[in-house]
């Protein structure tokens, strides 16, 4: 589904790249964990496959179409859903409006369907009493579940998450990873999680470690 070819990135000096010549393939219905120490470039890699930045060299292909061809805005709108460590919800909206807004922007199949959004939130443990409450009044775990629900409501086949459990306790971490697994296996989406927690990575179908500017498959 997603393929990188000769991918490389550096900030200022080409001689000191974060990574280079990366050739990876990610499949639908699978979850992937990318491990690595801080500063190794795993988040930068995620920003490239999420369409938030352009690679310095190489290319990324979605179903054999280059992201350059698709266009980054189009790619972000239709093909990829992102979950951030800081949740990044619309802080002036309720969980329900967050989902409806995302569905409207991405032209999702269920755009405008309040019932669908409500069911997705309920499935993730956001009860009816929380649906119309401002997201700033939810706990961290609840906010992250709203962020995950947002990815589920959109039709994107690729879900990327940057340290999604970084701000969560053990119980919430387990819950969130379970959700990602369900998204991968039940909804047949490709889930790529960047994490520095080996326990989280261990629960994914495939693990890669970024070290010495290269990805090493661990499983």
């Amino acid at each position: 589904m997603l393929r990188t070819e000769g991918l490389g990135y550096w900030y200022q000096d080409k001689e000191q790249p974060l990574f280079q010549d990366i050739n990876l393939e990610f499949e639908e219905g699978q979850s992937y964990a990318i491990l690595g120490h801080s500063g190794t470039g795993k988040t930068t890699f995620l920003s490239l496959i999420a369409g938030l930045d352009k690679p310095r060299e190489g290319d990324i292909f979605l179903n054999d179409r280059s992201l350059k061809q698709i266009g980054l805005t189009n790619y972000r709108r239709h093909d990829v859903a992102i979950v951030f460590q800081a949740y990044n919800l619309f802080n002036y909206m309720s969980p329900l409006n967050n989902l409806l807004t995302a569905m409207a922007i991405t032209n999702a199949r269920h755009a405008g369907d309040r019932g669908y959004a409500q069911r997705v939130l309920n499935d993730l443990g956001i009860g009816d009493e929380l649906l119309t409450r401002n997201v700033q009044r939810l706990s961290g775990g609840q906010q992250q579940r709203v962020a995950i629900a947002r990815t589920m409501c959109c039709d994107a086949k690729l879900v990327v998450a940057d340290e999604p459990t970084g701000n969560l306790d053990e119980d919430n971490t387990k819950e969130v990873i379970d959700q990602f697994q369900r998204i991968a296996h039940d909804q047949q989406k490709c889930v790529i999680i960047v994490t520095h927690e080996p326990d989280v990575a261990a629960r994914c179908d495939h693990q890669y470690r970024l070290e010495n500017k290269q990805f090493v498959q661990l499983d």
Partner: peptide, 8 residues
């Protein structure tokens, strides 16, 4: 940023 990440 969130709006842009959603493709707005």
């Amino acid at each position: 940023g969130v709006l842009l990440s959603l493709g707005e």
